[in-house]
Structure formats: C-alpha cells, structure tokens
Design a binder for these strands. Structure first.
Lengths: 331, 331
DNA sequence: CTGTTAGCGCTTTCAG
DNA sequence: CTGAAAGCGCTAACAG
C-alpha cells in the first residue's frame, strides 16, 4: 500500500496525495476530502524511509549517554527524550560506556543514520586531552551537537551546563563561614562536572585561607566503598568535619559511615550531596543536597538543539544555576 | 558523497561497491581492496535512508515506556537498550505516559517509522479491559512485539515476565510461618505486576488461614505519602506487623514511618521492598527486598524479540524467577 | 488547483 | 566475478 495505490483509488495524481498528506494548502477542499477518505479506509501510512530519503531527515535526534551509574542520568534521559518528543522528533538512545573508541564509533553510527542533531549527555563526553574531543568537532560538521553538562569549544557545538563550580563554591564558603573546618571532597571520577565542583570547592577554601587537601576518589561510587574510604581516613587520624560529595550516592555512603560510627549528624559531621535525587530523602536524617535543576537543564539543552536545527540564533554556552536544598545533614 | 562517487573513483560499478559495502563474497580480493581504499579515503558513509527504503528496515527497535517514576524502569531501559545494541540494532525510545490514547498513538508512530520490532516496557501496557489491548494486537500484525513484565494474548506478541506472583507468595508465606501477623500490602497502582504481587500476597494469606485485608494504594508512591498513609492506619488503631511493598520507594516510606514513630525494625515491624534497587541500601537498617533479576529479564526480552524477527521459534511467554535479598528490615 | 517527472542513494535481479 | 538497469515510495520543481 503506497502513494500510487491511493492516487489510483482516489483518481488524483500522487503529487496531490502527497500534498494532502503533508497538509499543503494548494488542494481544493473537495479533493482533500476525497483523498483523505481513501487514505482512512485503506489504512495507508506513508513510508518513513522514502520520505527520509527525499528530505534527508527522519526527524530524529541521537542521544549518547555513557551509562546510568548515577540516577541523575536516568532522569536526564527522561526529560531530554520527552522534550525532544514535544518538539516533534524521535530519539535514538545509545549507551556508549566510557571508552573514547566506543564514544567515537557510536557517534559515527548516529551520523550514518542521518540524525538531525545529537545530544551528548553528561560530563564524561569531555576528554581531558582536548585533541581527543576532535571526534565531536568533526561530527559537528554534519549536524549540530549539544553537550549537556560538558564544554568543548567548536563550530556547531552548543553547551548547556549546570553551574557546578558556583554551587560548590557557595556551599563550601557558607560552611566555612559557619566555622566548619576539615572539609573534604568525595568524587567518583574527574569528568568535567566533577572537576568544576572540585575547583569550586578548592577556590572557596583558598578564598578563606584554608588548607586545600583531601580529595578522595571512590571510582565505584558505591556506598560501601565510600564508607570504607572514610574509615581508612579515620584510621589515619585525619579529622573530618564536613563531607562534600559529587553525587548523592556518595553522600549516602558518607552518612552510612557516620551512622555506623555513632557520629552525630550534623553536629559532629556535615554531609552534602549533589543532584537532589530520590536517594537524598531515603536516609535518616535526610541529606542536604545541591539541586542542579535537571528539568530546566534538559529542556534548555533540547531547545538549543532545536534552535540550531531551525537556523535560529543559538548561544554557544548556557549556564543553569543550581540551588542548595537544606535537609538534616547540615545546620 | 554517494555510491556513484565511489564507483567512479574506483572504476567499478555501483553494484560492486554495494557488494563490497555489504561484505558479499562475490568480489575479487583485488577489487575489494581497491574499493575499500577509495571508501576509506573519501570517508564515505552509506545513506541509511536509501538502504532502509530498499530493505524496508533500518535495524531499529522501538521501546515504549510509561515513565521513570520508579528507578526500576531506568535500569530496565538501560539493559534493554544495551542488549538491543549488542544485537546490532538501534533503539528509538518514547515515553508515553499512562493514557491509553497516548500509548496507542505512539505505537502508531513507531509503526510508521517502520521499526523492526517493539518492546513494551513495564506492566502498565496491560489494560484491565482486554479490549483496550487491541491496539497492541493490531500493531503486532506488522512487527513482533515483546511485552516486558506484562501479558497480553495475541498473535506475534511475546511476553517476558518476572514471576512476581510466586515471589510474593513465597515471601508472604515465609513471614506467616515465622509467626508474623497483621501483614499489609502497599502499592502504587494496580498494573499487571502489582496485581500479580497482590494475588501472591492474598493467596498466601488464604493458604495459611489468615484474614485477607489491608491493601493500601499510594498513587504517588512518594515516601512522605506512604508515611502519612501508615500514620492514618495507626490512628485508626489498625495493627501492622509487616509491610510488603510493591516497590522500594514505598518501602523507604514505610521505614521512615517506623523510624519516626520509634518502632523497632524488624522486631516491631518488618518491611519488605521490591526491585532491590539502590534505594534499598540507602536506609538504616537496609531494606530487605525482592530482586526481580532485571538484567536477565531485559536480556531475555530482547532475545525473544530478536528470535522472532529472525524467524526462530520463540516461546509466547517466559518467566524469570525473583529472589529475596535479606537485609535489616526482616528477621 | 492539479499532474508529470526527475531525482533521493541503495539493493538486487539478470546477463554476461 | 562484474555491470546495467529496474525498482523501493516519496517530495518538489515545473508546467499547465
């Protein structure tokens, strides 16, 4: 069942059928009605591939995401996909893992599927050696790319970021100004976002003449590994007054450590998570967390991509500010 | 840059280029090498639309998911998408929301994009009035459909389910046999899965001559709403000895209730979650939860779809058994 | 307002 | 082993 069948059954040319399908104004009401009736009765659906071939677009956006280690990504995917759909596009989702080779290969794959744009979801798409980001710059020669929570400079690359640096700077400063000392920063990996957070933390310490030290990486991000890492710190006799975490799961681990060792929270020790995910309200006390405003971030990212696709002017970089949600693990 | 360009540059016909691209055996080693070299040098990528038009397939699977209210869905999406990718297909992901109209419309949309198969992710794709499932049966006339954690009878529909009934029956029975009484079941909505759980719960009570009552629905599934619901129960003087929950978030709410009211867990009250998500290890004590084995469920679902696409024999229905993960909220 | 026709880029017979 | 040519179903420019 194709456009020729419809054209025969309704005694008009395929061009007219095509016009009806695409809602063109240049069709008389009578003809339109007649054709529509035939289409309806025969249950005809246009072939998307043929249309795609002609228009060189199937109205599809590719989304690359490393994984969903952190629930943050799940939520981001949800909002991004919904937002794309609202714009009349579909989403092809691919999980690439963290290897550069896989990222690059899957980018190619999206390109060969002729997507109309690409979303790089999460900070892990910024390689620390900027040369390694060339695969992004090359891809951007074909379609616009928006990096959600990452920044790479290049033509046709648009970046939408949560202002992690500022959020972390502010929170750290506030803590210090409340006479909190012995702050430490816990992170999972040093992707772009985590580096921004660390820098905010560090700069705040420097600005308040505090010693800068004690970043601890917990690669798994696992609750028990976090606990273990803190116990090792304790064993070394290193005092800990406040723990700032790169995500909520780490914060949960920190709290588990505190509770296990009968430390009073927040009296003996303060804990601050990041992402304001559901995890932060599961614990007792509930965890103070920084909300990166993921819905806005997602919507804006997609908006930037759409603007670029539609040829509207689009900023190279947008920042969304994060805000602190105070709960039981801080004063 | 298309197949004609390559054909010219390498002095062969487009047919030969096509053969090289598709790894056909009917090409001499020398010709293959020559063509491959040109392709390499020119960075040529076949046009997926044109190929799709000819083959009537772009090797794409559509995934419909209601939302990610429960993190369970996030994980399912992750594993399903990865598994599809491993099979050489791409995934188009759409969030439909819970309305029948939207589900049906988006199903149409997938069909018109000529996907090779469809995954219906989650129990919410089973409408309680079976006539409402006709849109699934109709779609299945075009492409195979696999329902992950749902069951609808129909040609070309394959169902892959977690054995929620049995898991709940077993857990409830074990509880009763340990002299636990006053069991209640908390759920978010009565989708297929939640109904199976409820039935397992109910049958176990009946089998042990216990009174069947106290199902409570908390539509939001929200931690605080769960707590409130339990407080209302308490106010009514209804005793609660054990709480079985349809998901972990509800269990977290139940635990929050217990902790707030200084009930000893598990001495005064037992709590069992469902899904064995990260949420279950955030709390103190950590939550005993039923693990639906989501990785296996995802892989098997995709395998069934692939088998069906490839014309291999495929069972109409497969069950994956769940297992109890004991933690601190039960004896 | 409507019809004719030339692509879009690839796969796949069919000949040779 | 290789090439010529006929589609696949649709859009859009052009002619009327």
């Amino acid at each position: 069942m194709n456009i020729y069948d419809i054209s025969k059954k309704s005694n008009v040319s395929i061009a007219t059928v095509s016009r009806v399908i695409n809602g063109s104004q240049n069709v008389s009401a009578a003809t339109r009605k007649k054709v529509l009736k035939v289409i309806e009765e025969s249950g005809y659906k246009p072939n998307a591939f043929a249309r795609g071939l002609g228009l060189d677009s199937m109205k599809t956006i590719g989304i690359l995401c490393v994984n969903i280690e952190d629930y943050y990504f799940s939520e981001a995917i949800y909002h991004v996909v919904k937002s794309i759909h609202r714009n009349g596009y579909d989403s092809i989702l691919i999980f690439t893992g963290d290897s550069l080779e896989s990222k690059s290969k899957n980018m190619e794959s999206l390109l060969s599927k002729r997507v109309d744009g690409i979303v790089l979801l999460g900070s892990s798409y910024v390689e620390s050696d900027d040369k390694d980001n060339d695969y992004i710059r090359n891809a951007a020669k074909q379609v616009p790319i928006v990096m959600m929570n990452g920044y790479v400079d290049g033509e046709n690359i648009f970046c939408c970021l949560s202002d992690d640096y500022q959020a972390m700077y502010d929170v750290t400063s506030a803590l210090i100004e409340k006479q909190q000392s012995n702050l430490i920063y816990l992170y999972r990996n040093l992707n772009y976002s985590a580096r921004q957070k660390q820098k905010g933390f560090e700069d705040a310490l420097l600005a308040h003449q505090q010693e800068v030290r004690n970043y601890i990486q917990i690669p798994s991000g696992n609750v028990y590994d976090v606990k273990k890492a803190l116990e090792e710190l304790q064993a070394k006799g290193i005092p800990v007054g406040a723990i700032l975490c790169a995500d909520d799961e780490i914060a949960v681990g920190a709290l588990k450590y505190a509770v296990t060792h009968n430390l009073k929270v927040p009296e003996d020790i303060s804990i601050i998570g990041y992402n304001n995910s559901k995890l932060s309200i599961c614990t007792n006390p509930e965890i103070t967390s920084i909300d990166p405003n993921i819905i806005d971030l997602s919507s804006l990212s997609v908006k930037m991509l759409m603007d670029s696709i539609n040829g509207d002017i689009t900023p190279k970089k947008s920042l969304i500010s994060a805000k602190l949600i105070k709960r039981g693990t801080t004063h």
